[in-house]
């Protein structure tokens, strides 16, 4: 049986940038220093009007192809994770087949997840490869949350940045005694209302009422067609679920924290990450943080952090890496890989 390995990661950030100085101009009650100390973010990249998730996806995929890792015709299956698609239908991944120059004999689908999406995408890709349905899977995460965000809503505008990342996964021969990478997942629909765009689809179709802007107690402005986040609830959810999720994965793999070389969590904001890290007693030198110049890019934070850790030398061949994604849904998941292979030797 074949196993799955990550062959290459590339990412793309749109050209537009919103700095903390820009935000201080828009929200005089907040200082640049306060924004940085509370989020760890200095700037975010924002897609231009008319620049869609699919456009970012094309850029990221073309960078991956330009690296020489693979030709578009070598892709058997495209998985696109996005919550800001081009259309209700058709599937954005199908339009990408044509734009990227992939074979018409390739499979393609979208899946709608946010900050947990990369881990779920790796799980799906591993399933496709291990079951022999595909040899080369292109997993693309692409998001333009900025299009859901009101300019006067600092609760989300400070955090989120637009981005796309492309990850190539390929079948590799099974090493003796190797097992597919372990995954743990979690879902709790009770949290749906705490990170949501309430209107615009069919539960609440767009209309004069849903487009009306209102101001909340903190002075943040938004309509029901825009992104609402209850930050305190999301934080409480991560404190409740993520330590348990990490422990479940370690137990499943019969490992301890000391056996893991690098932890790459969804880069939500640095304050939350630091609190989680300390709560779980994870050593700072094994904990990846990369969001200063791109913000929270939703499903792309983990591949961006992996790519940067690779380039900085923090992530080395053969290291055991834990990936943990969590957020909107609520949805969460975690996996372990022995870089770059999505597998752990049973004897390890």
């Amino acid at each position: 049986m074949m196993r799955a390995a990550i062959r290459e990661i590339a990412y793309y950030l749109p050209e537009g940038v919103v700095t903390n100085a820009d935000l201080e101009t828009d929200f005089p009650e907040w200082s640049m220093d306060k924004i940085e100390s509370k989020t760890g973010i200095c700037s975010r990249h924002i897609a231009a009007p008319g620049e869609c998730s699919s456009d970012l996806a094309v850029q990221a995929a073309q960078r991956l192809f330009a690296s020489g890792a693979c030709d578009p015709t070598g892709i058997d299956y495209l998985l696109l994770c996005t919550q800001s698609p081009d259309y209700f239908l058709p599937t954005t991944a199908c339009t990408l087949q044509q734009r990227l120059g992939m074979r018409t004999s390739a499979g393609a689908l979208d899946f709608n997840l946010g900050c947990s999406g990369y881990v779920y995408g790796l799980g799906l890709a591993q399933g496709l490869i291990v079951s022999g349905q595909a040899e080369r899977v292109l997993l693309v995460t692409a998001e333009t949350y900025s299009k859901f965000i009101h300019n006067r809503d600092k609760s989300v505008r400070t955090l989120f940045g637009d981005a796309a990342a492309a990850t190539l996964l390929a079948a590799v021969p099974e090493a003796e005694g190797s097992i597919p990478a372990p995954f743990v997942f979690g879902t709790d629909g009770r949290g749906a209302g705490n990170l949501i765009v309430p209107a615009g689809a069919f539960r609440k179709p767009p209309g004069p009422d849903t487009g009306r802007e209102t101001s909340d107690e903190q002075g943040n402005v938004r309509s029901e067609e825009q992104l609402y986040m209850n930050g305190a609830e999301i934080f409480t959810f991560t404190l409740r679920e993520i330590p348990d999720c990490v422990n479940r994965l370690l137990q499943k793999a019969k490992l301890t924290v000391a056996d893991v070389d690098l932890f790459v969590f969804h880069q939500a904001n640095q304050y939350m990450l630091e609190h989680l890290r300390k709560k779980m007693r994870l050593p700072a030198e094994k904990f990846c943080v990369f969001l200063r110049d791109c913000g929270n890019t939703v499903s792309s934070t983990i591949p961006i952090a992996l790519k940067e850790a690779r380039q900085s030398g923090q992530l080395q061949d053969g290291q055991r890496v834990m990936l943990v994604g969590f957020g909107v849904g609520y949805s969460w998941g975690a996996t372990l890989l022995r870089w770059p292979n999505l597998e752990l030797l049973a004897s390890a």
């Binding site: 305190a232 934080f235 404190l239 304050y271 609190h275």
Partner: peptide, 25 residues
């Protein structure tokens, strides 16, 4: 404010091992 709520939740988790719900807060 909302930022203080997040910091408060972190503080009571850290200093008291307490989990508080946002609604109750």
């Amino acid at each position: 404010d909302s930022l203080a709520f997040v910091t408060f939740i972190a503080m009571v988790d850290d200093s008291y091992g307490a989990a508080v719900s946002v609604q109750e807060l």
